[in-house]
Nucleic acid binder design. Structure first.
Lengths: 336, 336
DNA sequence: CTGAAAGCGCTTACAG
DNA sequence: CTGAAAGCGCTTACAG
């Protein structure tokens, strides 16, 4: 049996020749398109298999107008947020044969432009924009592109498809958990009020307390920075007055860690005297607090997966409802 | 002046037609190859510019046999190590017009195989393999591929090009810093001895102490886990005997954090009584310790950049010295 | 210096 | 059901 014509990569031409058919028939047989007799099809397939034929995706893309690759723009190089999103995108798409170009833009508009142009030149089927804040857009205009765009964990223009965690729902879960632990004096220690997520979580917290008939005075939300230090300060402030809380919902895990450390230093038992719930489920923080932290997971990997699949549908010409998709968060119960 | 023939993307055919030359000439003019008169060249270029011509990279790759894309395999989805490496690779390569396919394999050999096949189908110019441990290979065989492979922060086969941080040098810097702070009783609290980096750092630590004429009894290296908890335990052990250290070099920042917290809880001053140096410069840990942690940065982004550039040279047929490239670490001085 | 032609490796109407 | 031909958008010898 004749082998491939050269030592180079085997092409569909080699397959066709070996199977004694035209390349057109070979193509149809291999792709399951057109009408080919079962006998011919299986013969061609087995020949392809024997020769180790792998189609050149570039050539295929040139005619099919589908590159089976997408671009992922991120400006959160060192952050913890986009990594799981990226992993989810990649995981969701590889099953469909699509690969993901990673473009780290580091907040640099020129670099972003260069990356976008490179992606377009490479005929990507679409672009996913991801960031670390749902209320800040990437420093590059992605409207009027010739390919679909999906936004994940970053702001997008009106009419765009944007996927974000459901902060309200997450915060509600956190507070309900505290209430279920029989906590009655619950406060919220969170980040800077300038963050939209901060305001949403705070509002959801208030609403949940209100719904349970618990006190919701404004003073029960303490805004600060996203740091452990702020957790310490908040505890100092709370414990300087009377009427100390028995439940603390923190805006992120770092604050929660500061809170827990501060409570321990004061001899306040967690969770015996005070229950604490964080937000992010940042393993490295949440699992190392003493006791390990009960917190909210934003399911970012799943968010990434959905972003990828939505983009794929768009690229396939299917219609996808645009707007803000809020994906559910989960409560992760540990020991705090 | 006639515009592009259709509302679709403008091709080199449109440019040639508008400039009244052949596509061959247009191609040469645009790419700076072949002989074209200066007049023609600039005319073609300005036409291309006006029409907003952007070459289809797929078509170009089909003939040129260069796709200007590479694959990046990583099995450290949630880790902090490969993210900067990836960013460095992307940053170093985009300047050369090459884009990076991100493949997160999560330790799954089948998935890895699927990704590699997809990359090969897409005619990548090369592959970079990255992991989180220099002494563990990825779960996929990358030898005998038709494209060059570079390993970064992961084990590779004999004869391969492998880039890793210079752990010995990093550890030496750490110890020298402690010595420069007039510390004389220095111990090393580190991770599991099963990690190659642990053994190398420990050895370098011993060597540096020895070179300075300081005590190097084996007991001065304490092996444990990569956790804060272990930092606490190590301090408890060290302070239970006599002859307590005045300098502690930790195997990573988490251990260092545990050590610093434990010292504070005992009322031991850092850095007044004891100086502490970590390893990793993991911002989120190092910057939040009290006091902020002096530590070693592995310069992973630079490592990634170099890996990308090395791969590019290989892809260009240039010769690159294979073997283990140890890239320098830097001491980052904070307040501990 | 410039262009006609062939080719990269596929797929897709269109005939037969 | 099968194949000859054209085409995707470029580049590259090869002539002129």
């Amino acid at each position: 049996m004749p082998g491939p014509t050269s030592s180079e990569r085997v092409t569909i031409y080699d397959v066709a020749k070996t199977a004694k058919v035209s390349t057109a028939t070979a193509s149809k047989a291999l792709n399951g398109t057109g009408r080919v007799s079962e006998e011919t099809r299986s013969r061609i397939k087995s020949v392809a298999q024997q020769l180790g034929f792998r189609p050149n995706a570039l050539a295929r893309s040139l005619t099919s107008k589908r590159s089976f690759s997408v671009g992922l723009l991120t400006d959160d190089t060192y952050g913890r947020f986009t990594l799981p999103v990226m992993a989810g995108v990649s995981e969701g798409l590889i099953d469909h044969g699509v690969s993901v170009f990673l473009c780290s833009i580091d907040g640099n508009p020129d670099l972003a432009r260069i990356h976008v142009d490179a992606l377009l030149d490479k005929q990507v089927d679409g672009i996913i924009a991801t960031g670390k804040r749902v209320d800040k857009p990437l420093p590059v205009d992605l409207t009027h592109l010739s390919v679909p765009v999906v936004y994940a964990l970053t702001a997008g223009p009106a009419g765009a498809l944007i996927l974000v965690p459901d902060d309200r729902q997450g915060a509600t879960e956190a507070v309900r958990h505290l209430i279920a632990q029989k906590r009655r004096r619950i406060v919220h220690v969170t980040g800077p009020e300038s963050f939209q997520v901060v305001r949403e979580r705070a509002q959801a917290c208030q609403d949940a307390l209100h719904a349970a008939g618990l006190p919701t005075a404004d003073a029960l939300t303490l805004y600060g920075s996203w740091s452990e230090l702020w957790g310490h300060e908040a505890v100092a402030r709370l414990w300087s007055g009377a009427n100390q809380p028995d439940g603390i919902f923190c805006g992120n895990d770092q604050i929660a860690r500061g809170v827990i450390d501060a409570l321990r230093e004061r001899g306040v038992g967690v969770p015996t005297d005070v229950s604490v719930v964080g937000f992010d489920n940042w393993e490295i923080v949440a699992a190392q607090t003493r006791p390990p932290l009960t917190t909210i997971d934003m399911n970012l990997k799943e968010l990434g997966r959905q972003a990828g699949l939505a983009l794929l549908r768009l690229a396939n010409g299917e219609t996808v409802a645009p707007g803000l998709w809020k994906l559910p968060c989960s409560l992760v119960v540990r020991d705090s």
